[in-house]
Simulated assay, not measured.
Amino acid sequence: MSGTRDGGATGRRITEKVSADALRGATGRDWDGWFAELDAWGATRRTHTEIATHLREEHGVDGWYAQSVSVGYEQERGMREVGQSSTGDWNTSGSRTVGAPPDRVLDAFTDPGVRERWLPGVVLTERSRQPARSLSAGFRDASGEAGRLSVWLTALPDGRTRLGVGHEKLADAAAVAAYKAFWKERLAVLKALLEESP
C-alpha cells in the first residue's frame, strides 16, 4: 500500500497540516506561490537539502518553514510520499506527555520486564543511551518487523516528561501507517502504566 494524494493510510500531506493562509502569513507566499517559484527554479532536479537551502538563503524563509515548504513541494511533485524521508527511508513517530520523571520513562524501554508490560514481544538492541534524555536502539517485534528506534525525553517543570519516539527504516508506506497506529496505542498504554504505579 502506498501513500496517495490525500495521504491515504500513511497520513496527511504537509499541505493539509499547514494552511495556505498560515504559510502566507509566515513566509509571504501560499503553497501555490511557493510551488510556482520552485518550479521556475528547477527544484524537481534538486535534492531536499538544496531546496531548503535555496528557500533559506535566497528567500529568507526560516528553518522550520523552509523544511516544510521543501517537503510539501516534494510530496506535491511526486518526489516523495507521506512518511518517506528525503533519503527514501520510511519513518514514523509518536509523542506523549507522561506523568513520570524521565528516568522512569526511559527504564520502561530498557528494562525487559517493564517493557514486556506495555510493548509485548518487542526486542530492543540498545545502540546508545543518555540517561534520562535519549535512547537509540534496533527494533524487532514478534512479526519479525525490524527498524531503528529513537527515543527523546524532555523533563517538564511539573515533574512530567515529554516523550518522543521515532521509528525509522521501515519497509514501506504500509508499515508507516501500521506503526503510526501502533505507537499511538502503545504510548497510551505506557502512559497509563507509569501513571498508575509510582
Rank of each mutant, 00 (worst) to 15 (best):
L194M: 14
A177F: 08
L163S: 02
V189S: 09
R148G: 14
R77Q: 15
W152I: 00
G8T: 06
H54G: 08
R104V: 04
Q75E: 15
T44W: 01
A132E: 07
R133D: 00
H48A: 15
V114K: 06
D141E: 15
L170H: 04
Q75C: 12
L194S: 13
V151W: 00
E58W: 01
G28C: 12
G7P: 07
R13V: 05
S136P: 01
W31E: 10
R45E: 15
A22N: 05
G78R: 09
R148I: 02
A155E: 10
V98I: 15
E185W: 00
Q67G: 00
V151L: 05
A52S: 15
P112E: 01
A9N: 12
S85Y: 00
D158Q: 07
A132R: 13
R5G: 14
G88T: 07
T49M: 02
E76C: 08
G166Y: 00
V98G: 05
V189W: 01
H167T: 02
T154E: 07
P131D: 14
G60Q: 08
T49V: 01
A108D: 05
R162G: 04
K184L: 08
G121P: 09
V71R: 09
E168S: 14
Q75K: 10
V18E: 10
E145Y: 02
V82S: 03
E196A: 15
W31Q: 11
Y65M: 15
T161F: 09
E81M: 05
V98E: 03
A146E: 15
R133S: 03
A36V: 09
R140D: 12
S93D: 12
G63T: 10
R96G: 04
G60V: 00
T53I: 13
L124S: 09
W41T: 12
E37G: 01
I14C: 07
A40L: 12
A188V: 09
S134L: 11
V71S: 04
D172K: 06
S85R: 12
A36H: 09
S128D: 13
G63K: 05
E126V: 14
A26S: 14
L153D: 09
A100L: 09
E50P: 09
A137T: 10
K180V: 03
G11S: 07
P120S: 08
T110L: 11
T161C: 11
W34L: 11
L163W: 05
R5F: 12
A174S: 12
Q130C: 01
D141Q: 14
R115Q: 08
D141C: 14
P102G: 06
L156C: 02
R80V: 04
Q130N: 07
G7H: 06
F35A: 10
A174I: 03
G11N: 06
L170W: 02
V98M: 07
R140F: 01
L119N: 03
